[in-house]
Design a protein around this nucleic acid. Structure first.
Length: 848
RNA sequence: GCCCAGAUGGCGGAAUGGUAGACGCGCUGGCUUCAGGUGCCAGUGGCCGCAAGGCCGUGGAGGUUCGAGUCCUCUUCUGGGCACCA
């Protein structure tokens, strides 16, 4: 074969790999193990270019590790439960199960031609009873270990459709289908006690040396450790209001107490006061997201209740119900210090509350807090001298001093709190893992017996009306109480799909076992050595997985050593694309795939009927917005190696990229050129040419550059070096022996990115066996150093000339040589330089 | 609103505090070709200049340094996350 033909080459080598079974991971041999995992996909039914980017990156690592002598585990599966399948069922009348498995089949068919080194024998789908049954077993063990409990929590409630909405289904505070104003409503739900591990999850971040700093920072902020004072205000009508504050040093500036609309006091008032009930109902409008709550207009309601300031019983503060106070954080009640908090300031201004400065700027610092907390003489300014601008007590010191002071006076206690809330896992939906518990009239909530697992989802369900089909199924709920045997009812809530993805990495080590994990397999393969996925998972998925690894260790499903499941993490950037939108007659948005849209005359139009579409700026490729680009066209037109090389070559892996396919053809031409060069090298007679010293050096430089590039996830930079090496090889006249060696090395260095082409070239040039398993080349350090270096010469920091000198020339001689240069003599104009800076091998700078 | 990132030619981007724009795309010119494509060669940040060369230049404003795309402060815009999208 004399021309590059991707389809022939790729099919041939894929079947060669299959026959050799080189991607089948087995727990044998004495090679060090290496577990590389990319975040598994939701089976949307359409492989998109973001998937290709993600899995190709992982494949480069997996193949590189295989070549460097590791026993590699590189599995693939499906995060297969979730809302889209139910939405599809509601829209088109099919069944979520059929929809999901059909999508899996399609995507798998799209994935196979890309030549990823996946061990398909370990394929799992979270919607398979074989998987979710084991998840139910895990849940029961966690329940027994006290890691799961029930409590009330708020959900988005659509009062028209009478159903719970996901945050995604709340658009501008309204239900996506009904358009009704969404309300926050409480339901009894199941929770994982992740907050019990707040401190540990925070502290252990320090040990995650191979995680991106930004992810660790985001997680730390999310867990949100704070130090503050918890104390009670006495109500003038008896009783107390418990408050937590991180700013006890501003206590003297308090002008009101605020409580959440969900606070027990608010709820009690609501029972018999119509005005309170009306305010609380209004405050509960809108979605449950923190963003919606924080951005909502700040509203308060004076309950008429009054509390006494802890330092001065005569000083009374009003109690407001405020819509921005979260019941989930602290005690659900705060004191407001408008002089030192922006939100409190706005609130106080709106409701005409006093603003009392606590700090007197530019005053002498004082350290005696007993004095400091004595109210000042005037009624209008009760300040504490000295905190602001003080050298001795600022920030955390001031807070700690204030806590000490309050404790000494018997007012509350210093406490450490975390922002992290327990993880609510209940979902009022069908297409998820059933929560394996039973509600019995006599025994209460009873765990299902393990022998009855898996609790399977029923197939005979309908989606013609909103709500959870499990709730209205005629018989599925009916069961016998595992404890007393009496008729009982199943829990109809299913689990959050985050549960499914919180332990799949462990399941991959023994994907078809009759227990969640197998000790020997987990001990051998865990931890994941390299985890790769989108930055959008920086907080939730990764934190939940860290929690689950701990929970699985507590329940005996993972070894102690796997307490942190992911040794190294790489967060790839997202592939973004413009969103094309039209609207229905009712005004609901309809999203169109980019390939349905034609761009012309500065506008965008539907190919089908020519209607103009609205172009919404780029966002991450997402099934729900249809702004996904299908890579199969590139694979079909140019082959897998082109697609792989193309997605890796143009942008740094951790950066977001706006997708464009322009350049794919040029990539294909480059690969054809590499092939042609290899053919020419194969045909070049041995022993001709000008010798091989330069080519050999270039070869070893390429080995060094590409190796470093792969190890540091600098795939685009590694590819740039490969272009350079290819150009060098193409121009080389070193002779057949040297050129063949260089071309074979080029094939090897390219093999993690373009494995099919590399195999072909490797075989053509007499490589032994498969290049995929050939030992990775090692650069000879002696060939990496240059004898002479070119130093730029700056005058006052501006480059004026350059000089070529031996690499080991002493500083003084470099100086002498530089000062003798015409350009330097001219610039100095007879004067002596004030300073000469010589950085060996780098630069010379003259200050004149 | 809060937390985290990012911003460099026409485009994607490169650059341990040390020659900004490697490498690629695109474009321009040339050779090859009946022609198109392919292939090969050369050029390609802006401004001034015949040239040699000079000046400017990494979102914006300051600062540290012999030297800043890189470090610090402030700021603008874009992207991600905000606990029921996955």
């Amino acid at each position: 074969m004399s021309r590059y033909s991707a389809p022939d080459i790729e099919a041939k080598w894929q079947s060669a790999w299959d026959q050799a079974g080189i991607f089948r991971a087995q727990r044998i041999g004495d090679k060090p193990k290496y577990y590389v995992l990319e975040m598994f996909p939701y089976p949307s039914g359409k492989l998109h270019i973001g998937h290709v980017r993600n899995y190709t990156m992982g494949d480069v690592i997996a193949r590189y590790k295989m070549a460097t002598g590791h026993n590699v585990l590189h599995p693939m599966g499906w995060d297969a439960f979730g809302m889209p399948a139910e939405n599809a069922a509601m829209a088109s009348g099919g069944h979520p199960k059929d929809y999901t498995y059909a999508n899996i089949a399609v995507m798998k068919k799209q994935m196979k031609p890309l030549g990823w080194s996946l061990d398909w024998s370990r394929e799992i789908a979270t919607c398979d009873p074989e998987y979710y049954g084991q998840q139910q077993a895990l849940f029961l063990d966690m329940l027994a270990a006290g890691l799961v409990y029930r409590k009330n929590a708020v959900v988005n409630w659509d009062p028209v459709d009478m159903t719970v909405l996901a945050n995604e289904q709340v658009i501008d505070g309204k239900g996506w289908r009904s358009g009704a104003d969404v309300e926050r409503r409480e339901l009894t739900q199941w929770f994982f006690k992740i907050s019990d591990m707040s401190g540990e999850l925070l502290d252990a971040i320090d040990g995650l040396d191979d995680w991106p700093a930004k992810v660790k920072l985001m997680q730390a902020n999310w867990i949100g450790k704070s130090r503050g004072l918890q104390f009670a205000f006495d109500r003038t009508d008896g009783g107390q209001i418990e408050v937590y504050t991180t700013r006890p040093d501003t206590l003297m500036g308090a002008s009101f107490v605020g409580i959440s609309p969900d606070h027990p006091i608010a709820k009690e008032l609501e029972q018999h006061r119509a005005d309170v009930a009306a305010f609380c109902a209004d405050a509960r409008k809108g979605g449950t997201t923190e963003e919606a709550i924080e951005k909502a207009e700040k509203k308060g309601f004076d309950t008429g209740l009054r509390v006494r300031h802890p330092f001065d019983p005569a000083w009374e503060l009003p109690v407001y119900i405020a819509n921005f106070i979260l019941m989930d954080y602290g005690t659900g009640a705060i004191f407001g210090c408008p002089a030192h908090d922006q939100r409190d300031f706005e609130f106080a201004t709106k409701y005409g509350l006093s603003i009392l400065p606590v700090f007197e700027p530019n005053d002498d610092p004082i350290t005696d807090l007993t004095d400091a907390f004595v109210p000042a003489k005037t009624d209008t300014v009760r300040y504490v001298r000295g905190f602001a601008g003080a050298d001795v007590q600022t920030g955390a010191d001031a807070v700690e001093a204030a806590i000490d002071h309050c404790e000494a006076r018997g007012i509350g206690a210093g406490v450490t709190k975390y922002r992290l809330r327990d993880w609510g896992l209940s979902r009022q939906r069908y297409w998820g893992c059933p929560i394996p518990v039973v509600h019995c009239a006599t025994c209460g909530v009873v765990p299902e017996a393990k022998a009855n697992l898996p609790i399977r989802l029923p197939d005979d369900v309908t989606f013609d009306i909103p709500g959870n089909p499990l709730d209205r199924h005629p018989t599925w709920r009916d069961c016998a109480c595992p404890s007393c045997g009496a008729p009982a009812r199943r829990e109809t809530d299913t689990m959050d799909t985050f549960v499914d993805s919180s332990w799949y990495y462990a399941r991959f080590t023994a994907p078809h076992a009759a227990t969640p994990t197998v000790t020997e397999d987990a001990a051998y393969w865990m931890n994941v050595d390299q985890y790769i996925g989108g930055i959008e998972h920086a907080i939730l998925h990764l934190l939940y997985s860290r929690f689950f690894a701990r929970a699985m260790q507590i329940t005996g499903h993972l070894p102690q050593s796997a307490i942190e499941p992911f040794d190294a993490l790489f967060t790839q950037g997202m592939v973004t694309h413009a969103i094309y939108q039209t609207r229905t007659a009712e005004g609901r948005p309809v999203y169109h795939y980019p390939d349905e849209v034609e761009l012309r005359d500065g506008g965008a139009y539907l190919r089908a009927d020519g209607r103009e579409v609205e172009v919404i700026p780029s966002a991450k490729m997402s099934k729900s917005k249809n702004n996904v680009v299908d890579p199969v066209n590139i694979v079909a037109s140019y082959g897998a190696d082109t697609a792989r090389w193309f997605v890796l070559s143009d942008s740094p892996p951790d950066r977001d990229v706006e997708w464009t396919a322009s350049g794919a053809e040029a990539t294909s031409r480059h690969l054809a050129r590499v092939y042609r060069i290899a053919v020419e090298c194969a045909a070049t007679p041995d022993g001709t040419g000008d010798g091989d010293a330069d080519l050999l050096k270039a070869t070893h430089k390429a080995i060094d550059d590409v190796t470093k590039g792969i190890e540091s996830f600098g795939f685009n930079a590694a590819i740039a070096k490969l272009y350079g090496f290819t150009n060098t090889l193409q121009k080389s006249t070193a002779g057949g022996t040297a050129q063949k060696l260089a071309a074979r090395t080029l094939a090897q260095l390219m093999s993690p990115m373009t494995p099919h082409l590399s195999e072909e070239i490797w075989a053509m040039l007499g490589g032994v066996g498969l290049v995929s398993v050939a030992a990775w080349p090692v650069a000879d350090p002696a060939l990496l150093v240059d004898d002479t270096v070119t130093l730029p010469i700056q005058i006052n920091g501006k480059r004026k000339a350059e000089i070529s000198v031996p690499a080991d020339m002493p500083k003084e001689e470099v100086e002498k040589a530089v000062l003798a240069m015409d350009a330097v003599v001219r610039a100095l104009d007879g004067a002596a330089p004030k300073k000469i800076i010589v950085v060996p091998g780098r630069i010379v700078n003259l200050v004149i």
